Simulated scan of single mutants.
Amino acid sequence: MLEIKLKSFKALNIQELYDILQLRTEVFVVEQDCVYQDMDGKDQKALHVLGFKKGVLVAYTRIFKPGDYFEDASIGRVVVGKNERSFNYGQLIMQASINALEENFNQKRIRISSQVYIQEFYKKLGFKPVGEEYLEDNIPHIAMIKEK
Rank of each mutant, 00 (worst) to 15 (best):
R24A: 01
P129D: 11
R24W: 01
V58K: 05
S86G: 12
E136V: 07
P129A: 10
R85W: 14
K65W: 05
G126W: 10
D38M: 09
V79F: 03
V80L: 01
K108V: 15
T25G: 11
D38C: 05
E71S: 15
E71H: 15
N83C: 14
D72K: 07
I112R: 08
F28S: 08
C34P: 01
E84W: 11
R111Q: 13
Y134A: 05
P140F: 00
V58E: 12
G90H: 02
S86Y: 13
V79C: 08
A73L: 03
I139E: 04
D72M: 14
N13Q: 08
A143D: 15
Q44I: 12
N83A: 14
I145R: 08
T25Q: 08
R111E: 15
R85I: 02
K82S: 11
L17V: 06
V56Y: 15
G126M: 09
P140R: 01
N99C: 04
Q22V: 06
A73N: 10
K124M: 07
V79K: 06
N99M: 07
Y36D: 02
V30D: 09
M94V: 04
Q32C: 07
N138G: 09
S74M: 09
N99R: 09
L12M: 01
A96D: 01
A11D: 12
E3M: 13
H48P: 11
V80W: 10
V56I: 14
M1T: 13
E16C: 03
K82R: 11
I145N: 09
F52G: 03
A59Q: 00
V29N: 11
F105M: 06
G51N: 09
K45W: 10
I98N: 02
F127R: 04
L92C: 03
I139Q: 02
F127M: 03
K148G: 15
K45A: 09
Y122D: 00
E3I: 05
E31F: 06
I118K: 10
D137K: 11
F9I: 01
Y89E: 12
G76N: 02
I93L: 00
D43Q: 10
I112S: 03
S86D: 14
V29P: 05
E84S: 13
C34R: 12
S8W: 01
K128W: 15
N99Y: 13
V35D: 15
Y134I: 12
